[in-house]
Structure formats: structure tokens, C-alpha cells
Amino acid sequence: MESIPIEHSLILASILFALGLIGVLTRRNIVFVLMSLEIMLNASGLAFIVGGARWGQAEGQVMFIVILTLAATEVAVGLGLIIQMYRQFQTVDINVLSEMKG
């Protein structure tokens, strides 16, 4: 079996994480912000899988499953918040949330 340089896999995870960070910082649509958060969580899961594969152990996959659960919960709560925000402000622009009212 051919070997894969571990730094290439970790660099891929870092690139995906940085792309997600750019998405979170630049987008104004809150649905895109949530999607970019998904990309970042997925990148950290990839890093855990690479770490597990380096030692041939299953711990990386266990941690990935925990991250998967975390991502699912985060999306469910986040989408509920988006629906509530759209009901109140009729927009998905996060800049309208900059003022606190009562």
C-alpha cells in the first residue's frame, strides 16, 4: 500500500478551515455564514481522521462521530434561529441584528 504524506492531508484540512473562516468573515447572508461554519467543523473532523490514520487507531473516528453530532445539533439550533429571525425582520442580512431592542 502506498503511503500518503501526512502534512499534505493536514494542509488540506487547514486550507478548508481557512476557506470556511473567509466565508464566515465576508458573507452577510446568515445561511452562508452557517454553511461556512459547517465547512470549518468538517475540516477539523478531517484533521482528527488524519491523526487517527497516522497511528492506525480508531480514536480519530470516535472523535469524528462526536464532531458530527455537534455539527448536527448546531445546524438544527442555528436553522431554528434563522427561521425566527426571518419571521421578525423579513431578511437574512446579519447587519439588521446589530441593534439590540428591549
Binding site: 500500500m1 503511503s3 500518503i4 492531508s9 487517527g52 490514520a53 492506525g56 480508531a58 470516535v62
Partner: peptide, 23 residues
């Protein structure tokens, strides 16, 4: 930081059973 190490990664198949035993 990441390129300071040059470990090689030889993929070993870690299947459902190993993960479930740990879980």
C-alpha cells in the same frame, strides 16, 4: 508549522468493529 514534520502515513483499514468496540 505543519511542514516541519515529514511523517509518512500508511493507511490501515480501521473498520466498524474497532470503532464500535471503542464507542
Amino acid at each position: 508549522v505543519l511542514t516541519q514534520y515529514d511523517y509518512e502515513l500508511v493507511p490501515i483499514r480501521v473498520g466498524v468493529m474497532e470503532v464500535s468496540v471503542l464507542l
